[in-house]
Design a protein around this nucleic acid. Structure first.
Lengths: 157, 157
DNA sequence: ACCAGTGGGTTTACAAAATAAACCTTCTGC
DNA sequence: GCAGAAGGTTTATTTTGTAAACCCACTGGT
């Protein structure tokens, strides 16, 4: 589009040459992930979100609109007369759980000094969860230094 | 600290009541994660990062300073006369790989239409990787709807 | 000796985004 | 017919981000 490729940054266009960038185009601002965390926790109404987060109302409004536009949330009328709306996660939104869990775990490891503020469990077992990266071939847990990166079929640069 | 708890938002203080918030206090702005992605990819110099990302130089400067201050990166003099520096991931920084992978995977699933721009592999197997959340008790892969959340020992609210 | 080029920044002027507070609208229940 | 709740929008102000210019130390070429 631009000959000198100015659009390397946050472009607002999720069809990026990098999937991290694509993701950040949707949820990579100061508030979106906090809004989503709150929705994951069960807050679905505008007022509740606003109070819990302390976000300015106009910003919350625009963030929710953007998340709805990007199909991460849906706006559902849960009452008529007076009309009341709530925001629910779509499948795509729920699929962000892995990312939120990764961010939470990092915060736990480096800022919670062994005492996590929130613990996630398997609903049926009530046991703790663990997030791992595994090799689809050998099945072993792969740490950051054993990871290699190569261009895939969607590479555009 | 503040009686009416105004500090629910992005406070710049990672010792938050929520680990997601703590994490976002460190890397939750428009650029930090993109800078880190670039460092993960092997770009360690100021100029290289600036050119690759298209970020304003003063912003890159302040982001790098903040990441160094928070011990995500270290600034290493790799040459004297003239002095040249490079930025390297610390252990804490490398530990963000899970989060970057989660964000990348989400982008792959929802914006790459089956063709990932980048593929991560197990260095020794050359096979694809998979990120999963597993139960420490039953060992099964736990999807977003089977996850339960409860307050942990570090809860402060 | 001079000058261009490289690396790693800082300063400055300007534009965009965030914040806080006030305001608006529709409806209910008293 | 008034207060209060829900879900916003408008407005003024402050904070951030952006782009371009500039600075400094040094090297290698002429």
């Amino acid at each position: 589009m631009n000959p000198k490729s100015k659009t390397t940054a946050i472009t607002g266009d999720p069809s990026s040459a990098c999937s991290i960038e694509a993701t950040l185009d949707v949820i990579g601002d100061r508030w979106s992930l906090l809004v989503l965390r709150s929705v994951f926790r069960g807050n679905h109404q505008f007022s509740t979100l606003q109070t819990e987060l302390g976000i300015a109302r106009n910003l919350l409004s625009s963030r929710l609109a953007r998340l709805v536009e990007n199909e991460v949330l849906t706006k559902v009328e849960y009452q008529r007369r007076p009309k009341r709306y709530e925001y629910r996660l779509t499948g795509k939104g729920a699929d962000l759980s892995q990312a939120l869990i990764a961010l939470m775990n990092w915060g736990d490891r480096w800022y919670a000094s062994g005492k996590a503020p929130t613990i996630l469990t398997h609903r049926s077992c009530d046991a703790a969860l663990e997030q791992v990266v595994v090799c689809t071939a050998c099945g072993t847990d792969v740490g950051p230094t054993a990871i290699s990166s190569r261009p895939g079929p969607g590479r555009r640069t």
